[in-house]
Design a protein around this nucleic acid. Structure first.
Length: 372
DNA sequence: AAGTTCTTATTAC
DNA sequence: CTAACGGTAATAAGAACTT
């Protein structure tokens, strides 16, 4: 079945919101993230505006490094409550454009436009009563050029978001989620790019291997070691060869670099684990600090369990020592529970083992439970 | 031998 | 002097263990 998938990604989301809220920052590089503390900060950059990116600052960069690169940038803390609220407003707009909608993160979403026509609002309401579930709110495109139509929808969507929120976005359209996502990445910022099925091969082949979702720094490095830098070159590896080197994910590379991806657009989010972790201001061994924080995290995790009516059987405690060496210890109970006392006592036992077996200063601790 | 648990590695936003 | 590196979650793989 031929599909038309749209991927929308807000441009430098957190930083663009701050720019909108603080017009006096216009024209200056903005970095949203941890407090740089004159270069001593321990956190990372969440989002850098495009002006900040000119200095080499980007998401996930240690904030200390960002401060080095551009100490005069505007450094702002993460105002998650604000971004959350604006995200909700934006997603409310996006989902009007197709009943098949999937939110990926605060600033990213997919729409399946295969059967969707403009305009929508009236139709969706009218059809709810009558149409069968399969075509609920949709109308099959039998006439016209569906790809042109999809582009028109995208233009309208971008415009509506800009007019209502004064924020720019980038949209990619392709025959599946993979191509739509890679397309929006290429088109940003404030872009719109459509890759039709007959253009997919030409689009993919010249891209770098790490442009492929699923190929991160480690996999890219392994590939470079065997002389593979471009997606086109990756096509020389057989499916079995890819499986041998990279396992199951390697097999998916084989399909992906040929533009194949059957993942449906669907918003069935199933939470499988809940956790909290915390990095200390300074590496420490002070039991007061460690256990105080640990109890807080356990309480929060427990709170979320109750809110969602979840139980767990397995808990994992994470400990990162000075020097970034990270270990985990886990324990699986005989029967599922949501009891705070059990979680607390068992998690503490695991944490205690870390303290006993390793005398190093501790940088981070965390706890996570697997829902069952 | 098969199933479960534990630990680490990798990726993504 | 070099490294620097948050929080949350999913998934895979292999080792270690129970049954």
């Amino acid at each position: 079945m031929q599909r038309i998938i749209l991927h929308i990604d807000m441009d430098y989301f957190f930083a663009q919101i701050e720019e909108r809220e603080n017009p006096q920052f216009k024209g200056k590089p903005i970095v949203v993230g941890a407090d740089p503390k004159e270069g001593k900060g321990r956190g990372v950059v969440s989002t850098a505006s495009y002006l900040a990116r000119k200095y080499g600052i980007h998401s996930a960069l240690p904030i200390s490094k960002a401060y080095q690169l551009c100490p005069t940038a505007i450094f702002l803390p993460v105002n998650m409550a604000l971004y959350q609220k604006i995200s909700e407003e934006i997603m409310a707009i996006v989902k009007k454009y197709s009943p098949t909608f999937e939110q990926v993160s605060l600033d990213e979403a997919f729409l399946d436009l295969s059967y969707t026509e403009l305009p929508q609002e009236a139709k969706v309401k009218k059809r709810m009563k009558f149409s069968s579930p399969i075509f609920y709110g949709r109308e099959k495109c039998t006439i016209g050029k569906p790809w042109e139509k999809a582009k028109g929808i995208a233009e309208k969507l971008k415009k509506e978001i800009y007019e209502k929120e004064k924020l720019t976005s980038t949209i990619g359209i392709g025959p599946n989620k993979l191509i739509a996502k890679m397309t929006s990445k290429k088109a940003k910022p404030n872009g719109l790019l459509v890759i039709k099925p007959d253009q997919v091969k030409k689009f993919l082949e010249p891209l770098d291997i790490d442009d492929l979702p699923g190929i991160g720094p480690k996999t890219a490095e392994k590939l470079r070691e065997i002389g593979i830098n471009k997606i086109k070159e990756l096509k020389n590896l057989s499916k079995t060869k890819l499986k041998d080197i990279f396992g199951v994910v390697g097999e998916t590379f084989y399909e992906k670099i040929r533009g194949i991806d059957e993942e449906p657009v669907s918003n069935e989010e199933i939470i499988k684990s809940i956790g909290k972790e915390h990095t200390f201001e300074k590496d420490t061994r002070d039991p007061e600090i460690i256990f105080e924080n640990f109890e807080q995290m356990i309480k929060q995790v427990h709170q979320e369990l109750l809110e969602n009516n979840f139980s767990f059987k397995t808990m994992t405690v994470i400990c990162r020592y000075q020097g970034f060496e990270t270990h985990t210890k886990s324990k699986t109970l005989k029967t599922p529970t949501n009891d705070l006392k059990i979680l607390k006592s068992e998690a503490k036992k695991l944490l205690l083992k870390f303290l006993i077996e390793n005398p190093k200063l501790i940088r981070l601790i965390g706890v996570r439970v697997k829902i069952c």
